[in-house]
Design a protein around this nucleic acid. Structure first.
Length: 704
RNA sequence: CGCGAAGUAGAGCAGCGGUAGCUCGUUGGGCUCAUAACCCAAAGGUCGGGAGUUCGAUCCUCCCCUUCGCAACCA
């Protein structure tokens, strides 16, 4: 779409059941924020909406897990996510939530509109029903034996043991997790959106019209779904958490979360309009509105297939583009909430932004690195070393350093003021630099319009690199030494510094969408107002007036120290260990007879169990969980490293008698050799307790 | 299984018909205004494997191998 009248930009609504990590940030939020800031700098009419997605079965499940109510869960995570986005300089015009009445009304109106026009089908099916709880059971609420591996940890949607995808009907001996009783089959009816009816439209719209301008990964995914045959999808569920189906005979039914969530973009726009006394309708109905959804690749089907069908049936405009990103891996492995292998936005905020040497510059460092490695065409990888390299060698050494040396030299050689430009002696280098400055605007612009954020950012950094090259060729510090012999050299110095200063002003404009906090610091150094950042000023060479005095330099970025990244990597690994310990005993599991397979006496006899007394204990440095213990076996003392630091203080356990496995092969942990293992009982909440003889016993006594 | 995306220098990534580029890292040199920063240069790749189309293929076609995703939650 060329020259639209207005823009509506959305970022995927984050699901309110937990904190979000940097993968989310890189995928759907930072690119959208860059795009929006760029449009605003161009004085375009743009609204940027987002908000929390607060319905669906996972919310009540999370509530059970945390021992609280669904309402408390969504309030907690809505607040947390909103705060985190704010801390990372996301510039939403509104951060809404789907629990608001205006959203319920909007979603219900959507449903009614479609239903009244017979665009939905009603189908009857048999679903499991819990007679005691008087409710139909979501797949996730039914537990049973896996038909594949025989584990009793299989749910109606998937087996936790073998990972196989299941349907509730496949479970052997299904049990309701609500009442613990066997559920019965009961007939129920649901509304379905027949996607198949719209196949031709999708083929035309995506595979033909947008074949070229949408990302290959997006078109490819859509093609895969369309050709795979589009099934009707239920838009309602039997659940008591969500938006009530607005019909008399639909007691106990709510809209399926995937149906109401994208409508959240519409209700957020409405709320924004109310807050700002604007009309929301053109943003969703006028053909001259450019709608852009920023999402991750998992969301492609909703934003490219299902929601567009809903929008089309409802008479709304369709997205102009859906620049979905692939996934971001972390230190060689997929990010995963359940395995705790992730970097939460909040953790970064606490460890960097909120520190004394943090603040806006640390926000921009993360924004920089995540943009630089954004998974635009394929999965990419976040590594702490990569983060450090990007910050130290590009932000600090190239960009920050260019600005700094310009400022320092300007103060030393030009009296702290913008020097005159002597046009009569401009040389080849000056002219080339001018052309580079003028050319960058168009380059960055074109790339941003194509959603190539990584490349666009590269162009900006590259412009500062060209500034460094230019300065190196002109060597004003050498010219300064020749001043005594040749006072005319001042003219050379003036020209060089004048151009470097104008270049800095340009850099501020160009970097602003990506690193807004940095742009702000630069404005402060230049003593100019925000208006200078207007995009139309990019490429201009008269942004700073001659004779204007400028502030002292301030460093734009600090370096990331080795110790900081080492600490982060260790923290990540410690978190993984914690979660793996947790997986063995999920908190919500009732006591079960988790018996291991039978062994013979000989197997048991191989174990050498002995009574021992802990004589010394200390924390292992740089390890959250480990304690280094010394135990007395009577006949010898030995060192055992044990992963119990989260449960016991070293000073509290000295003198305790324990049972150890004395013939376990030695193993090095954190460089300390551990000779044996202390036996522990584990409560279902993960709490650990020592196994010891009921009364004091001689150290070294065998246990059998 | 099938479908989609991807496999390119030590690392992270571009490119996509005319025998390969960028950033970091490495090595050597220059400069010293600058956050031991900057600048220049060099080394380093049979572009996953095989076959085909073409005057010519990393880029097109086919086969194979590997990784990721595919309407549970999840960017």
């Amino acid at each position: 779409m060329t020259d639209p009248k207005r823009y509506l930009v959305t970022s995927a609504l984050p699901y309110a059941n937990g904190l979000k990590h940097v993968g989310h940030l890189a995928g759907a939020y930072i690119p959208a924020d860059i795009y929006v800031r760029y449009l605003r700098a161009q004085k375009r009419d743009v609204v940027f909406v987002c908000g929390s997605d607060e319905h669906g079965t996972a919310i009540p499940i999370q509530a059970t897990k945390e021992g609280t109510t669904p309402r408390a869960i969504i309030d907690k995570y809505h607040q947390a996510m909103k705060q985190d986005f704010e801390d990372l300089s996301m510039s939403f015009d509104i951060y809404h939530r789907t629990s608001e009445p205006i959203h319920h009304e909007t979603a219900q109106e959507f449903f009614t509109y479609l239903n009244d026009r017979n665009e939905l089908e009603i189908k009857e099916s048999e679903q499991y029903y819990d007679e005691e709880a008087k409710t139909f059971l979501a797949d996730r609420y039914i537990k049973g034996t896996c038909p594949n591996c025989g584990s009793d940890r299989a749910y109606g949607d998937q087996c936790e043991n073998c990972g196989r995808t299941l349907s509730p009907d496949e479970l052997i001996n299904p049990v309701s997790t609500l009442s613990g009783k066997a559920p019965v089959k009961k007939r129920t009816s649901h509304w379905y959106l027949p996607l198949g009816k719209h196949e031709e439209f999708l083929r035309e719209w995506i595979l033909k019209e947008h074949k070229e301008d949408w990302r290959a990964t997006v078109v490819g995914q859509c093609k895969s779904w369309i050709e795979g045959g589009l099934q009707s999808r239920a838009v309602t569920r039997d659940l008591d958490w969500g938006i009530k189906v607005p019909l008399k005979d639909a007691e106990g039914k709510v809209l399926y979360v995937w149906f109401d969530a994208p409508i959240g973009y519409v209700s957020a726009t409405k709320q924004w309009a109310i807050n700002n006394k604007k009309d929301w309708k053109p943003y969703w109905y006028d053909k001259d509105t450019k709608l852009v959804h920023f999402i991750g690749k998992d969301n492609i089907v909703f934003h490219c297939i299902i929601f567009p069908i809903m929008l089309k049936l409802h008479g709304n405009i369709l997205p102009d583009n859906v620049p979905a990103n692939e996934f971001l891996n972390l230190e060689g492995d997929k990010m995963s909430t359940s395995r705790n292998w992730k970097l939460d936005m909040r953790d970064y905020i606490n460890d960097f932004v909120k520190k004394e040497n943090g603040g806006g510059q640390c926000v921009d460092m993360l924004r920089y690195y995540l943009t630089q490695i954004a998974p635009e065409t394929k999965d990419s990888e976040f590594t702490w070393k990569g983060f450090q390299d990007a910050v130290n060698s590009e932000l600090v050494s190239i960009f920050g350093n260019f600005v700094n040396r310009t400022w320092v030299l300007m103060h030393k050689l030009c009296g702290g003021k913008v020097p005159i430009l002597h046009t009569e002696i401009l040389d080849e280098n000056d002219k080339i630099l001018n052309a580079e400055i003028e050319g960058s605007k168009a380059k960055v612009e074109t790339l941003l319009e194509q959603y190539k954020f990584r490349e666009a950012l590269y162009e900006v950094i590259d412009l500062s690199r060209k500034g460094n090259q230019y300065m190196q060729k002109k060597e004003p510090w050498i010219a300064a030494k020749q001043l005594a012999a040749n006072p005319d050299m001042q003219k050379n110095i003036d020209n060089t510094m004048h151009l470097c200063l104008q270049l800095t002003a340009n850099l501020a404009i160009l970097i602003n969408p990506f690193l807004p906090n940095t742009a702000k610091s630069m404005l402060n150094m230049m003593k100019v107002v925000d208006k200078m950042l207007d995009w139309e000023n990019a490429g201009k060479l008269k942004l700073l007036s001659i004779g204007y005095s400028l502030r002292e330099p301030q460093l734009l970025f600090r370096k990331i120290e080795d110790a900081e990244i080492t600490e982060q990597i260790e923290k990540l690994k410690a978190g993984l260990m914690k979660s793996e310990a947790g997986v063995q005993k999920p908190a919500d599991e009732p006591p079960t007879s988790n018996l291991k397979s039978q062994i013979q006496y000989d197997d048991f006899a191989k174990l050498d169990l002995k009574v021992a007394t802990i004589t010394a204990a200390e924390k292992v440095p740089k390890a959250d969980k480990l304690l280094k213990l010394e135990v007395d076996l009577g006949f010898e003392k030995r060192t055992i490293v044990s992963g119990i630091a989260l449960h016991f203080k070293p000073e509290d356990i000295i003198g305790k008698q324990v049972v150890i496995v004395a013939n376990l092969a030695p193993r090095k942990m954190k460089g300390i050799e551990s000779n044996g293992m202390i036996l522990m009982a584990e409560e279902k909440d993960g709490q650990l307790k020592f196994i010891n003889p009921g009364e004091p016993t001689t150290n070294g006594s065998p246990v059998s």
